[in-house]
Simulated scan of single mutants.
Amino acid sequence: MTAVFVKICGVRDLETARVAAGAGADAIGFVHHPASPRHIEPADARPIVEALGGVETVLVVRRLPLDRVLAVAHASGVSTVQFHGGEPDDDLRRALDEGFRVIRALSLAEYLAAPPSSTMDARLLLDAPDPGQGRLIDAGQFTRRPERPWILAGGLTPDNVRAQIEHLHPDGVDVSSGVESARGVKDHAKIVRFIENARAAV
Rank of each mutant, 00 (worst) to 15 (best):
T2A: 13
V4D: 05
F5A: 00
V6T: 13
V6P: 05
K7D: 08
I8Q: 02
I8K: 04
E15A: 15
T16D: 13
R18A: 10
A20P: 03
A20H: 10
A23S: 13
A25W: 14
A27I: 13
F30Q: 03
F30S: 05
V31W: 08
H32G: 11
H32V: 08
H33N: 10
P42D: 04
D44R: 15
A45I: 11
A45S: 03
V49M: 06
E50Y: 10
G54T: 11
V55Y: 07
V58F: 03
V60S: 07
R62S: 11
R63V: 09
L66A: 12
D67S: 15
R68H: 07
V72C: 11
H74W: 14
H74P: 02
S76P: 03
S79K: 14
V81K: 08
Q82N: 06
Q82A: 11
F83H: 02
D91H: 15
L92P: 04
R93V: 15
A95M: 05
D97F: 02
G99M: 10
G99W: 04
F100P: 09
R101W: 12
I103P: 06
I103Q: 04
I103K: 13
I103T: 02
R104C: 09
A105W: 05
L106Y: 14
A109H: 13
Y111H: 13
Y111F: 15
P116I: 14
P116R: 12
S117I: 10
S118F: 06
S118E: 14
A122P: 04
A122C: 14
L124V: 00
L126F: 06
D127L: 02
A128C: 15
A128W: 02
P131W: 01
G132S: 06
I137S: 00
F142R: 08
T143V: 15
R144G: 00
R144T: 07
R145W: 04
P146N: 03
R148K: 13
R148L: 07
W150Q: 00
I151P: 01
I151F: 06
L152P: 02
G155Y: 01
G155M: 07
P158H: 10
D159P: 04
R162D: 04
A163T: 04
A163C: 00
Q164R: 14
I165V: 11
E166M: 05
E166S: 03
L168G: 02
P170V: 05
D171C: 00
V173Q: 05
D174S: 07
S177Q: 07
E180C: 13
A182C: 00
D187H: 08
H188R: 13
H188W: 13
A189I: 01
A189L: 08
K190S: 05
K190Y: 00
I191T: 09
R193W: 06
F194N: 10
A198D: 09
A201H: 09
